[in-house]
Design a protein around this nucleic acid. Structure first.
Lengths: 187, 187
DNA sequence: TTGTTTACTTACTAATAAGTAAGTAATTTT
DNA sequence: AAAATTACTTACTTATTAGTAAGTAAACAA
């Protein structure tokens, strides 16, 4: 069984999340995997096909995590998400939305739709976690869950962007403060 | 007196803030201004020169606004900044940092330094406004001003990104909630 | 009036991009 | 054993890109 297809997607995701969709080429991938550009076209006829597949896979991963963690308390779910972003941060990767939404107007139509879907999936997930946390008494915040989810996701997205530019302390300082703002102290 | 130079910069800024640094070309600018590509190279020998000039001009504008509004109450300063982002939002533009930080690793070195400078300038400004607001009793928030400035700026940056993907309501909902969180009600 | 600078244009190069068509060796199916 | 499919490669086209060199018309300076 060939895993070339997945190797291509892994590398495409890395490139999107480090350099951006418009800044990577089939040549970048081919060079690392030691295959020819045309081999990538064999699996992904157009760059848009590759981009859509990468985003789609991410949407699937989100659905999986969401199912897996559904039973956990709200604040634990929140911390799991924060932890995932922290792992990205350590690798110097930004999140897919942080990379693709700035380029939104330059993306081919099928990618625009997938990116929109990805945004909605993440926000929906976060809203559910926040709602659960509010009900189970592990989180506290004012206003509607949807607005709060937008603010939390926006902090996570931006923290990766700003941390890469301004240095290491930024991610921790932002997320520490964010958690203090909405998490109920257990001390 | 020729204003070609400024026309080029205006257009470059628009293109960076709508399509991104890596997705616009000298041809895009030349086409609109009805000049030749080489005319742009006359003013800005390399694309990096153009990019640096655009970011540098923005840093100057921030310094100007900061001086102009220094005497205002903290919450009014904050609202002025929010208003500027709202104007961007109405035009469908994202902010320079929202456009350039995702592409950070692909930017030529002089641009990376300017982008870093721009981030620092905005954060510094926001921190000063928040500090003033806390002292003059118009704003209230927990934790350090620097952490709060990071969270506020991150919300502004992301609101433009997400609003363009998810639709109009997003900007207002995010910023309304953000202001409710830290502004002291005068009712 | 002559020389120089300003603000460009024309014409070009070299590099890189996505994408295609035809071929091929190995594996799998019939 | 023959046929078909899989997983590619070689070789190519077309388009776009940043950047350069040389020329030019008009304004300005000496």
């Amino acid at each position: 069984m060939s895993d070339t297809r997945e190797n291509i997607m892994d590398l495409a995701e890395e490139l999107i999340r480090t350099k951006g969709y418009n800044a990577f080429s089939y040549g970048d991938i081919a060079g690392v995997l030691k295959i020819r550009n045309a081999a990538i076209h064999y699996y992904f006829p157009s760059k848009a096909d590759l981009g859509v597949s990468v985003v789609d896979r991410e949407i699937g991963k989100i659905a999986d995590s969401r199912d897996e963690w559904r039973a956990l308390p709200g604040n634990v779910q929140l911390r799991k998400v924060v932890e995932q972003f922290y792992n990205s941060h350590r690798r110097g990767w930004i999140c897919l939305n942080g990379s693709l939404t700035p380029d939104f107007l330059t993306l081919p139509d099928p990618m625009q739709q997938k990116v929109r879907q990805l945004c909605e999936a993440i926000l929906d997930w976060m809203a559910e976690a926040l709602e659960k946390g509010r009900k189970d008494g592990t989180l506290a915040f004012e206003g509607e869950v949807e607005s709060r989810a937008l603010l939390v996701i926006s902090s996570l997205l931006s923290s990766l962007l700003l941390a890469r530019v301004l240095g290491k302390g930024v991610f921790t300082r932002m997320l520490d403060q964010l958690l203090k703002d909405i998490e109920i102290s257990t001390k």
